[in-house]
Each structure stands twice: as structure tokens, then as C-alpha cells.
Design a binder for these strands. Structure first.
Lengths: 187, 187
DNA sequence: ACCGTGATGTCAGTCGCTGTCATCACCGTA
DNA sequence: TACGGTGATGACAGCGACTGACATCACGGT
């Protein structure tokens, strides 16, 4: 076997999540992941930039969906409203992966280094959403703030989702967080 | 000389910022920093957890000031108002270090790994501010959102400050960002 | 049967980071 | 002055993350 088994990237991603969850991030070496996926350590680093990145290959999809959500928002929607529509649309990227998201969230929560990477991805999401807002004519500072606030609501909603039993959808939780945010700023 | 020169930590922090600014973060080894500070690599790791942390030893002061600002906020101030008062107080930690902050911001902006660490520190700041808000009786979700929003305003204000000529104070920029945020949520 | 192409394996090497132990400077005390 | 305790530092070995360079293999087309 060895060479030319299909979907090496997917195998490595699954192996990594399993190992990180089983024995912890620090107790897992890249060689462990590569071995379980049936490749060598060198091949791992051809697909993922570092030991952390293997948990974040879905971030690009989330970002793309969120930007599309902002673009498709009604023309009369305000900046925060449009940004909120973006992150709500982004929920589609995780909607049917509750179990995996929950496992992954546990792994990330257990390691500061992984939290750093997640924060970087959220910041990139915010930058992308802010860019989409600027395309709508929103001035720079307002776009940055609206994007940051919407991403904060997404994070809060996501945390509530993985802490729940999964009965309600991620988008429901995010919408609730956005409503809380509005009420907060008004008060 | 070698041993017992005073302020080894300060010497290493200065050496690191210089080297990161001169030749870049990746082109600098920990051994380079230690050598310029007149110590060994091993001593560096006794003071700083890793190669990045040397740029973030002021984060604790910022956090402490922000929490104090929240605690001292008027009793009738709302969550966002109190959180805002916190980050404005935090500005005192950097008020008289414009040049150093500017250099540091340039170094951080040039390296994703350093941005990750900065985001982690900002998240910790948000958690600390949220905790202070809860002490005031603010319910958990509102406290988290208000803290996140205030920290976002701090970041926006900080970026405006380092992008400016330093004529206005950091607290002025942060206050302006907080006002923008309020206007945004109202609209 | 041959060859070009791209993915993979192999190997050596650097650097971040840690554990362990010896060594040194300082300080108090007899 | 001599002595020992204490804390910071140096010296060394070692692991694991990550990279560059080159060889090797499977597959497709000719």
C-alpha cells in the first residue's frame, strides 16, 4: 500500500483529531499522525503548514461563506446587520458536523497554542467580513468594528452551541448572540 | 562581567525588540537575543516561556489596569460603558511609550505567529474584563459580549494611534472607537 | 515499451525548547 | 576572616517541529 492511497489529506486530518482527542495535543507527535495516516512526517508538512494547522483546514470555507452572506445581504441593511448575515451564513460550514465540532472544540480548549491559531482564524474572518462591508460602501472604521462585533457574536454563539446538546442549530445560537449584542449597545 | 549584571529581563526584552526590528523575527534566533543581552539561551527561557513572549511582558499590566477601570466605573454605568472605562484606563500602560509601541506594532504586524500571541493576550484581556463585569452583577453572556466589544474598540483605537503621528493620546483614539461602536449598534 | 509528471520517501540539518547538574556570586553568621 | 546556604546562571544532552535537497515510485500519455 503506502503510496497512492487516495485522500491523504483527509486521512491525516482524521488521524490528527483522533490522536489529539485520545492522548492530547502535546502528547502527540507529527510522526504519530503521519504513521496513523499511512504516510511519512515529510508528507504531512507538504499538506499542512505546521502541527496545528491540521485542525483548521475548514476555516477557508467558513470565510468564503461569510463573505457571500455579507454580499447577499439586503441593500438597506446596516453594517452590523450585514455582518451578522455573513456570520449566520457561515454557520452552514458546520451545520451538519456537530459531533466533530464538539470534539474539536474540546481539543482546542485544552491547549493555548491551538487557541492562538483559532483566534488568528477568527481575526482573518473578521478582516474578510470587513472587506466585504467596505465593498458595500461602509467606511473603514465602521466596517472593522461591525465585523469584529459580528465575529464576537459568532464565537459566543458557537460556544453556546458546543455546550448545548445540539438540539438547536448553530445559526440559532449565533442569531441569539447578535440580538444580545444589539440590546447591549442600546442599553 | 557576564553574571550578575542587573536587569537581565529588561536587557533581553530590549535586545529582542531591536533584533526583531532590525533583521526580522524569523531571522533572529533566541541565541542571538541572549548573546546581545550578555546571557545564555538557557537563561532566556528561564525568563520567557518562548521566543514570542518576550514582546508581551507588558500584557499583565494592561490587564490589571483595565480590570481596575471596570471596578472603578460609576455604579450606574451600563456593561458596555463600564467595559469601555476599563480599556480606557488600560491605555495608561502605554501612554508614554509611543515610539516603543510603534516599533513593536510593526514587528508584530510583520509576523503571523506574533499576531497569534497578541490575539491571545487580547482574548485574555477580554476574559479579565468580563470577569470584572460579572463582579458588578452583569449576567454572563452580556458580560462576555460587552468585554469583547470593548476590547475590539481598544484594538481599533490602538491601530489608529500607532498609525498616527502620536499627537493625540491612545485614550483619545480608544474613546473615539467606543463612540463609533455605540453609533454603529444604534444605527 | 518508453518517458514525463507529480506525489512520496529518505536523509541531513537547524532551531525552539526542556531536564539535569555543576558552578558562581552574594549574604548572613560564627 | 572563614564558612555554608541560597538563588541565579552556565554547560550539556536530548527531543521534537520544521525545512531543503535529492532519489524514487506510480500513473498517464505516446
Amino acid at each position: 500500500m503506502g503510496r497512492w492511497e487516495p485522500d491523504a489529506q483527509g486521512r491525516m486530518a482524521r488521524a490528527a483529531l483522533e490522536l489529539y482527542a485520545e492522548r492530547g495535543y502535546e502528547q502527540t507527535t507529527v510522526q504519530d499522525i503521519a504513521a496513523r495516516a499511512g504516510v511519512t512526517e515529510r508528507t504531512y508538512f507538504r499538506y499542512f503548514a505546521d502541527k496545528r494547522e491540521v485542525l483548521f483546514d475548514g476555516a477557508h470555507t467558513l470565510e468564503r461563506l461569510a463573505v457571500a452572506g455579507v454580499v447577499d445581504a439586503p441593500a438597506d441593511a446596516g453594517p452590523l446587520e450585514a455582518a451578522g448575515a455573513g456570520v449566520v451564513r457561515g454557520c452552514d460550514a458546520l451545520a451538519d458536523r456537530y459531533e466533530r465540532a464538539r470534539t474539536r472544540a474540546g481539543v482546542v480548549a485544552a491547549n493555548p497554542g491551538l487557541q492562538e491559531r483559532e483566534l488568528l482564524k477568527m481575526a482573518a474572518l473578521g478582516t474578510a467580513v470587513a472587506g466585504a462591508l467596505r465593498e458595500r460602501g461602509v467606511p473603514v472604521p465602521a466596517a472593522a468594528l461591525a465585523a469584529e462585533a459580528a465575529v464576537a457574536a459568532f464565537r459566543v454563539g458557537f460556544e453556546a452551541w458546543v455546550a448545548s446538546d445540539g438540539g438547536r442549530g448553530l445559526d440559532d445560537h449565533v442569531r441569539a448572540a447578535l440580538a444580545d449584542l444589539r440590546a447591549l449597545a442600546a442599553g
